[in-house]
Simulated assay, not measured.
Amino acid sequence: MLDTLETSPVRSAFCDDDDFLELIEMFVDGIEEKKQILSQEVNPEHLDQIKTLAHQLKGAGAGYGFDELSQLAAKLEEACKSQDRIEIAQQKELLLHHLNRIVV
């Protein structure tokens, strides 16, 4: 599944806004911690944490100019609400792949 995904870098829609650049840099700097949380195995004790993180990324993604990130996070949040472990695992992988492509 992941071998056919896009590999080009992802930049914020606001990356040309010098006033916003520092905030984007701070957001991108925090991505590594979020990837660690998403890399955890899908099990009941981590489900709430993953759902909360997906919700946060959904809002932050749009706010920082990363619309696709927001859309992928929304899909993961929905998967968490349905508690479909296979769907959660798939959406986590897609989101992680996207997070790995984000640059300032």
Rank of each mutant, 00 (worst) to 15 (best):
S70I: 03
G30K: 07
K92L: 06
G63C: 02
E77A: 12
E41D: 12
S70C: 04
L5Q: 03
F20H: 04
V103F: 05
S12C: 06
L38E: 03
G65W: 00
L2G: 04
G59C: 02
E87K: 15
I88P: 03
E32A: 15
Q71F: 06
A79G: 05
E87D: 14
A74L: 10
K92S: 04
I24V: 11
T4Q: 08
L95R: 01
M1E: 11
K92D: 02
E33N: 15
D48C: 07
K51D: 05
A74S: 12
Q56H: 11
A73C: 03
K35H: 08
D17V: 08
G63Q: 03
K35L: 11
M1F: 11
L69D: 01
V104L: 12
M26A: 12
V104K: 13
D16K: 13
N43P: 07
E25M: 11
L76R: 00
D84N: 07
Y64A: 02
G59R: 02
F14N: 06
L47F: 05
D29F: 12
T52I: 10
I86N: 12
A74E: 10
G59E: 02
G61Q: 00
K58D: 07
T52Q: 15
T4P: 02
N100K: 15
E32N: 15
D84F: 04
E87S: 13
C15A: 13
A62Q: 10
V42D: 03
F66R: 00
V10Q: 08
L69R: 01
E32K: 15
L69M: 07
E41C: 09
P9N: 04
G59A: 01
K58G: 05
F66H: 00
E77H: 10
I31E: 06
N100R: 13
A74V: 04
I88H: 04
D17S: 10
F14L: 12
D16I: 03
I102L: 09
D29Y: 09
Q91Y: 13
L72Y: 03
S39N: 14
L99V: 06
L99S: 03
K92N: 07
E25A: 15
D67I: 07
I31N: 05
